[in-house]
Amino acid sequence: MNTTHESATRDATARIDSERDALPCLCCGTAMQRCEATTPTPTRHRSARWLIATLAAMLLALGFTLTHARAAEALPGDSVYQLGLPLVDQDGQAFDFAAGRGKPRLISMFYSSCKFVCPMIVDTLRNTERALDPAQRKQIDVLLVSLDPDTDTPAALKHLADQRHIDTPRWRLARTDAAHVRRLAAVLGVQYKQLGKADFSHSTVLVLLDANGRIAARSEKLGDADPAFVDAIRRVLAPD
């Protein structure tokens, strides 16, 4: 069953990749940069005219359709990016969760004042990355979202990032509000409970998202890299 699911995901990912390649850049949304780099560029003159035409068509379309509905249509129904999640990173920069679309991503939840498990989450993510080639490593983002928005201000996250020599900006430590923490935990399958101020009990899960934000693999193993999880990352990076 597992294999079927994985191969289905793989097929779907491959299909979306090829679809994206076939589409003009403007349709890629947040994947635009990547798209620009890979799509053959016509001559400047033609490109400008094409851009104007496309923009006009898009504006027209927007006039008739809700922007929100359009964005949701493009995103798979089981994508965690369906969750509108406002985040702020260690540099105080606001960004949207779904802006990570277009690139596979490793994600986990933690809190900075945690002394035991959370440092191990960072270690485990590093060990997982070390199992990849440098080229593969560059193709994935890492996002750690705090369970403790009261304590984990951007300054606290920045402190942790410096202390642990976090590879920013490819890695991002982020916070959101309490209501969104619970929603993100729900979609990722992270169980947690606040025990006291800045004290949480939580399950530790590393989640691999594919480029469209679908959960491709999960691992609850801490410490050394989980071989099955590393394999899953390789598959997401190279669907063939």
């Binding site: 035991f116 498990v117 169980q191 409970k193 025990l195 009990s201 939580h202 399950s203 609850e220």
Partner: peptide, 20 residues
């Protein structure tokens, strides 16, 4: 917080993830 009802007070015991 329906998902937190059965979270044990100590998640540091990583030897037994099924406890959750």
């Amino acid at each position: 917080d329906y998902a937190a009802l059965m979270v044990t007070a100590d998640s540091r015991d990583q030897n037994d993830p099924d406890r959750l």
